[in-house]
Write a protein that binds this DNA or RNA. Structure first.
Lengths: 204, 204
DNA sequence: ACCGACACGTGAGTC
DNA sequence: TGACTCACGTGTCGG
């Protein structure tokens, strides 16, 4: 029932200001005094860590800390919702786009590999050397829409210069024979060039 | 200094349990008694609204409420980070995809008539006679996806046999020069052949 | 009976 | 000075 207690330290939230230092020697009071102190300190610590998580702080008050935490939680929840919605939307549109591409692919370059193989023709790339800078190559590949143009583009882009090109299309296959030299490279490795062409064909 | 105060209501957080009802009639104490009551109530309200925002609640304790709020804020922050990262990644990959598609389009089917004409190149078909059964022809036409293949198909279908074909693609145009002879027809009219080729190009 | 959580009233500090 | 916040000690419920 007595009021004057025995509180020595009082760790405040706002600052380390010492307050209400009482005498501890006189009389010992309630048994739950220390427990209550611990409880208060725990709550203050929690409040402090909460405050450390909230970026925007208006006041150092307890109530303000909680208020700021409330608004921050609301902001975070809204952000999560917005972000997940955007992500969902993006995924769906991306899937649609993929689908469109697939359909596009199917419509455009419906590959005649079947027909080609049915007629006993197989893909083939042969490269032989004519001289140091010049190669001759024979390429047989399944007809796809735009595949030859792509091959030309790719080889032009890669610096190949094709001369005396001979192209024939029959039975769902395209045969290309051409002399090739690379513009800005003095040596042309046969195997390397062959693999490059195979890679181009595979990629288109 | 007196302890027995005048607290009538005590809105607890955990439940609406009435506690510590004191007598208000006896004596009036500190002036900040009401202010303190208001402050406590405000803080309790804030804590309650904060609790309403947190989905996972372990205990109804004040400290537990704040603790749960802390962990929840951490989870939300992590979620926001993860989501924004995913979104960013998706956007970049999507942009890459778009870019790929654009490049693909540019390579494939974007009819480059505009670019071709911009570069001073015009469609052209020239046919000259080599000998009775053999012609030489030069064809310049705007690049479209599959146009060359179609040209080859059409000419094969019409019985043309092309030898020494030279194909170049640049600036959105395709130039084809080739020697041509018709398999099962002995005479090849120059003007006729030229018009036929023009018709083929127009039709595709 | 013990222990934890709570609201209370109050003194003390700050602005 | 007054308005405000804070920590304190305490009584009192509930488990």
């Amino acid at each position: 029932m007595e009021f004057l207690g025995s509180a020595s330290d009082a760790s405040c939230i706002t600052r380390a200001r010492r307050r209400q230092t009482y005498d501890d020697s006189t009389e010992f009071k309630s048994k739950n005094l220390h427990a209550e102190r611990r409880r208060r300190q725990k709550l203050s610590d929690r409040l402090l860590t909460l405050r450390s998580l909230v970026p925007i702080i208006t006041n150092m008050n307890k109530a303000s800390i909680i208020e700021d935490a409330i608004t921050y939680v609301e902001v975070l929840q809204r952000d999560v919702k917005i972000l997940s919605d955007q992500l969902l939307e993006m995924e769906s549109t991306s899937e649609e786009k993929e689908k469109t591409i697939r359909i596009d692919d199917q419509i455009n370059n419906a590959d005649d590999h079947q027909e080609m193989k049915k007629n006993g023709i197989e893909e083939d790339v042969e490269v032989t050397k004519i001289n140091g800078k010049k190669l001759w190559m024979k390429i047989v590949f399944g007809k796809k829409r735009g595949r030859f143009t792509k091959l030309l583009e790719a080889m032009t882009y890669l610096g190949f210069e094709m001369t005396d090109t001979n192209v024939t299309a029959c039975n769902g296959a395209i045969l290309v024979s051409a002399s090739v030299e690379r513009t800005y490279e003095d040596t042309l490795e046969i195997q390397e060039t062959k693999e490059l062409i195979q890679q181009i064909i595979r990629s288109i």
